[in-house]
């Protein structure tokens, strides 16, 4: 059996236990620290799956999240004993979520063999399949198509053509293919991401601003 798969299953089990503790514990500080453990576990899994970019980013993001959350929680004690909502029975919520997960997972994992929306077995991505390379030709120039076969997924095509400098396909020239995809092939994604960060930062500023509607102490309701 594949040792990487065993390690992966062990790490996923650790993360599952950590997340359950984080959700169910009464103490908010322990909850935050457990979610930190889950985040560092995610980083290790990324490293295990051959994604060092993601591992670096996840570690640093986790540190920042942990600093902010611990700072928020450590000075604000909140002694609430009932942790679940009184209006929603826990059993109903768990049943609904379980049915939803089973249906989605069943649809993804057990679909038709040739369907487009189907999870392939772990370790055998779509890019391992091969199709005729004529699909790579630019629009209107079928004579520029390379001969033979190419990968069935876009990721495989990016890997194969990443360094090409011909008329038919110009690669990025970046040794780190992830950065090539992120900032050249799919740079619109990155533009949208920058916009999302901008909006989130503006929202946080607006929520936390000190100069706001002034409130006369005592003679006005809290609204």
């Amino acid at each position: 059996m594949d040792p990487i798969l065993i390690l992966l299953l062990a790490m996923l089990g650790f993360m599952l236990i950590g997340s359950l503790i984080a959700i169910e514990t009464r103490d908010l500080l322990s909850s935050v620290i457990c979610v930190g453990a889950v985040g560092f576990g995610t980083s290790l899994v990324f490293l295990l799956l051959g994604a060092p970019d993601l591992a670096i980013t996840q570690v640093v993001v986790e540190i920042l999240v942990l600093v902010v959350l611990v700072r928020v929680v450590i000075t604000r004690r909140d002694e609430t004993h009932a942790t679940s909502r009184s209006t929603l029975p826990v059993g109903v919520v768990l049943l609904a979520l379980g049915v939803m997960a089973a249906v989605v997972f069943g649809a993804l994992a057990g679909g038709p063999e040739e369907g487009a929306l189907r999870l392939r077995p772990f370790g055998d991505p779509l890019m391992s399949a091969e199709v005729p390379a004529a699909q790579l030709a630019p629009a209107g120039r079928p004579d520029l198509a390379p001969a033979g076969t190419c990968s069935a997924s876009v990721g495989g095509a990016f890997l194969e053509q990443g360094l090409a400098q011909s008329e038919a396909s110009r690669g990025t020239g970046a040794a780190n293919y992830v950065m090539g995809v992120l900032l050249d092939y799919r740079a619109y994604d990155t533009l949208g991401e920058a916009t999302v960060i901008f909006v989130a930062v503006i929202g946080a500023y607006a929520v936390l601003r000190k100069v706001g509607r002034s409130r006369h102490a005592g003679n006005e309701s809290d609204r």
Binding site: P125, L159, A204, L208
Partner: peptide
């Protein structure tokens, strides 16, 4: 090599998750 496309998508998603978490913490 493994597929670079999901990695590129997730790289943006991680940072978006961080900024969204910061916004939610600010609200809390």
């Amino acid at each position: 090599a493994v597929d670079p496309i999901p990695q590129a998508l997730v790289l943006t998603s991680i940072v978006i998750g961080l900024s969204v978490a910061a916004l939610v913490v600010a609200l809390a």
